[in-house]
């Protein structure tokens, strides 16, 4: 199964809950807003964490494409 993530940078306000849930996929930029670390295919072993990142974002800024 293929998976990619899209981040809506305008909606992100830096809660960092994605980076807590999936630190291999989401990080922090200079001001603490989210940064996508894997822009291509997400490895299968990280899919569960990415789903948690999506379902923990208070701003609903993450979209998973499968």
């Amino acid at each position: 199964m293929n998976m990619k993530v899209l981040l809506d940078y305008d909606s992100c306000h830096g809660h960092q809950m994605c980076a807590i849930a999936a630190p291999d996929v989401f990080g922090s930029d200079e001001i603490g807003n989210a940064k996508v670390l894997i822009t291509g295919e997400i490895p299968v072993e990280l899919h569960t964490k990415v789903r948690r990142a999506e379902s923990n974002c208070p701003e609903r800024a993450i979209t998973i494409i499968e």
């Binding site: 306000h13 809660h15 948690r52 379902s55 923990n56 208070p58 701003e59 609903r60």
Partner: peptide, 15 residues
């Protein structure tokens, strides 16, 4: 807990 969009730190521009 799996789904936790909590707003302990607020929401929006005043996070």
């Amino acid at each position: 807990r799996q789904n936790n969009r909590h707003v302990a730190f607020g929401s929006g521009i005043h996070r």
